[in-house]
Simulated assay, not measured.
Amino acid sequence: MAVRALNASTAAPIAIQQHTGWRAAERDSRQMLEALDVAVYTTDREGRLTFFNDAAALFWGRKPELGELWCGSYKLFHPDGSPMAHDECPMAVALREGRELRGVEAIAERPDGSRVAFTPYPTVLRDPDGTVIGAVNILVDITDRIRVEDSLRASAEALRASNAVKDEFLGLVSHELRTPVTTIFGNARLLRDRGDRLAESDRESMVSDIAGEAERLLGVVENLLLLTRLESGIHPDPEPQVLAHVARMMLDSFERRHPDRSIELRSEPRHLIVEADRPYLDLILENLLTNAVKYSPARSPIEVVIQATEAEAQLLVLDRGIGLDGTDMEQLFTAFYRSESARSHSAGLGIGLAACKRVVESLGGRVWAAPREGGGSEFGFALPLA
């Protein structure tokens, strides 16, 4: 009886001591979890929240009520952006299947609409008998990692695209340079070796071919140099220019080189002044006129119209050529772009209009293209009035 009494008298204090130790261990564990800088929460075996730390509340963007199911996320999504039901979330799967879940990624949306990508680490908790009594989950924010990976993928794709453009560019430039150089070299060699035995008409034709191909070659080189200068940050040095005077001088030079083309200049008023770099302004006009000549029938008229609004001077080049039906007008001013009709009609690099756009915009102006009623095209630019 004495032994039994002793056992009975000591059982309660031992149980109290064990319970107190368990409570202390639980308190220490909670304090440790609270101190962690990573989101941690626990649930019972039914998936109801029993604990979450401040980092979890910050991660979720809200403080859920204890007893809510699965987690405190406002909304969940799969990595591909499709919705994820809360009872399909990694914590729910871990509890339902009684196992750890690893290698999963998901996206949580906060009440304010912001999203965070994360990797969960749900681990089931068992009693000494092995029965699942709940689970603990750690949520690791991988938003920055995903952003860096996306950026690296985008950079790699841009590099591949850049290499493709570079290869295409080198091929186009090689072709555009080889053709005029071949013509110039071949005709010059014939004139040197057999010029005195050729008919006068043949010599004149060959000299004309040399001049034409040299002009074409010069245009390619000038446009490439212009784009390179602008890309490297070298901008035009504008001075006041009388637009009609510059246009008249440019047209006189152009007509001497294209005697078979009729170009009419109309300017009202006649003394519009703009701030522009004269060589660059000449190149813009040269490119627009060359474009009109290239894509319109021989001897068809070309008009150059100068007009004004309250704030800007406008110059329009009008032709009766192949037109712009079905063409994306913005793409026309993209480097190396050439429409289907342009490619089938004439060779070229597709840099002249791009050079015009870059120069005009560097001067604070704008460019445009539009189909003309009755056929043909309108290409124009506008610069602020000085």
Rank of each mutant, 00 (worst) to 15 (best):
L125W: 10
W22V: 15
W368R: 01
A158Q: 09
V3E: 07
V132I: 02
G348E: 00
D87Y: 13
G98I: 02
N287L: 14
C71L: 07
D277I: 05
T42V: 02
A354Y: 04
L225K: 12
T334G: 04
I16A: 13
D252S: 13
A311N: 11
V246D: 02
L289M: 11
E204D: 08
Y337A: 00
L218H: 07
L6D: 02
R189S: 15
E26N: 15
Q314P: 09
I351H: 01
V293C: 09
S300T: 06
A39P: 00
E361D: 05
A108I: 01
R62L: 10
R147I: 07
D282E: 10
G21T: 08
S155E: 06
G326I: 07
R229K: 10
S377M: 09
P90K: 10
R96E: 15
E310L: 14
E268R: 14
G352K: 01
G323N: 08
I107T: 03
S267C: 15
L349M: 05
P13M: 07
F336G: 01
G61A: 07
R197G: 12
E312Y: 11
T290Y: 14
L36G: 01
D260H: 15
E312L: 12
D87W: 12
S341C: 09
A335L: 02
V104C: 01
S344A: 13
E231A: 15
C71Q: 01
N187C: 14
S362M: 09
V367Q: 03
L230H: 05
S300Y: 13
P128E: 03
I263W: 03
V165I: 08
G171C: 06
M206G: 06
F333C: 01
I16P: 10
V148G: 06
A199V: 05
M329F: 11
A24H: 14
L225Y: 12
K357M: 08
R30Q: 04
K63C: 14
S339H: 04
S344F: 08
E303L: 08
L315S: 01
A370F: 11
E255H: 12
T327I: 11
S232M: 07
D328H: 13
V140P: 07
P269N: 02
Y41H: 04
I351P: 03
I107Q: 00
L318M: 09
R278S: 10
V124Y: 13
L324A: 02
E213M: 09
F118G: 04
A92V: 03
I263M: 10
G72P: 07
M249I: 10
R23F: 12
G380N: 11
T10R: 12
G186V: 10
S29E: 13
N291P: 13
I322D: 05
A199Q: 12
D209P: 02
R192F: 11
E26A: 14
V148T: 06
L288R: 05
P238G: 08
D196W: 12
H86K: 14
S341E: 07
L315D: 00
R102H: 06
I306M: 04
S253L: 09
L33C: 00
R160D: 13
H235K: 13
S201A: 15
